[in-house]
């Protein structure tokens, strides 16, 4: 590294924050993904304010009203009504809450488990590593969907059960990635000097290792959020996830399935919503990976 690059910020070049801003907004995928996700999060948070109707109120005389762009559609129910005459747009907006909640909580639980396992395996190596690798192999060999379905069937389908089961199942990628990231840095000089200074192991893990594997952790969080959201939708679709009358998008697709031949928009609308959410989260994850990769700095 030359003298010039070290002094770059002081000599009038763009500041670190400006560079970061430029990297973030210069990345198309990150901007699009982040933008769409922000919009969906806002919809979920403000569902109570912006939803035109109560998502649970049934209007049995007005079942399967068409969306506004189809023949017979009206502005009162912009996205039409479902098989019980409930406003589809309102259910879609409230459904975003369920998907986001599932994604965040499941990724939080699995992220904790996987990070603890992966970081300890990578840092301590030896027997700890062997045990963690074994657990990862066992976990990977179990069919996720089948186990999740079976456990949800045993304990009854509810938001709490689904989120817990997914959280307890989806830690494998966290463990794999955190393990290899930790291995890459555990023998670097700054870790060795922290050891030489007499820092305790927990302190080294928390203040030296963790900040340096955080970028990869965030990327895995986005991947697993998306994974959990799709799995919840699939479980709810099969009738073994979130239970009616909650407006889960997977459940909406499942309820619309019976009218597949006559009213295909019933499955198209929540499906497109689900696709858009997953797409945005993936874009954001890829973007964060690109932007934070060391080779892209400066």
């Amino acid at each position: 590294m030359t003298e010039q690059t070290i002094n770059a910020p002081e000599t009038g070049g763009p500041s670190w924050a400006a560079q970061l801003r430029q990297r973030i907004f210069g990345h198309l995928g990150l901007t699009i993904g982040g933008g769409i996700l922000t919009l969906i999060v806002l919809c979920a948070l403000l569902a109570g304010v912006i939803a035109p109707h109560d998502p649970y109120v049934q209007e049995l005389t007005n079942r399967f009203a068409s969306p506004v762009w189809m023949d017979g559609g009206g502005w009162d129910h912009i996205l039409g009504t479902d098989h019980l005459g409930r406003d589809y747009l309102s259910r879609l907006l409230y459904g975003a809450r369920i998907s986001l909640l599932i994604g965040i909580v499941a990724a939080l639980i699995s992220g904790m488990i996987g990070t603890i396992m992966g970081v300890s395996a990578g840092y301590f190596g030896g027997k700890v590593d062997a045990v963690v690798m074994f657990l990862i192999t066992v976990r990977l060999s179990m069919p996720v969907v089948l186990v999740a379905l079976a456990v949800v069937a045993l304990f009854g389908g509810s938001l709490f059960v689904v989120v817990t089961v997914l959280g307890l199942l989806l830690w494998d990628r966290f463990a794999v990635v955190m393990r290899s990231c930790t291995m890459q840095i555990r023998d670097l000089d700054y870790i060795t000097s922290a050891k030489a200074l007499g820092c305790s192991t927990p302190r080294i893990l928390l203040t030296e290792i963790m900040p340096n594997v955080l970028n990869s952790l965030i990327v895995v969080v986005t991947l697993e959020m998306a994974h959990a959201i799709v799995l919840e939708a699939a479980l709810s679709f099969l009738g073994l996830g979130v239970q009616p009358p909650l407006p889960s998008w997977g459940l909406m697709i499942s309820e619309g399935k019976d009218m597949l031949l006559f009213e295909p928009w019933l499955i198209t609308i929540p499906g497109v919503a689900l696709f858009t959410l997953i797409f945005a989260i993936n874009m954001l994850g890829d973007g964060i990976r690109d932007v934070t990769a060391p080779e892209n700095r400066n």
Binding site: V230, I267, G271
Partner: peptide, 15 residues
């Protein structure tokens, strides 16, 4: 492929 839920993709193909 990464963003499309397989069960929904299946339904769309059926339709």
């Amino acid at each position: 492929g990464q963003a499309i839920p397989s069960f929904w993709f299946g339904l769309i193909l059926i339709v």
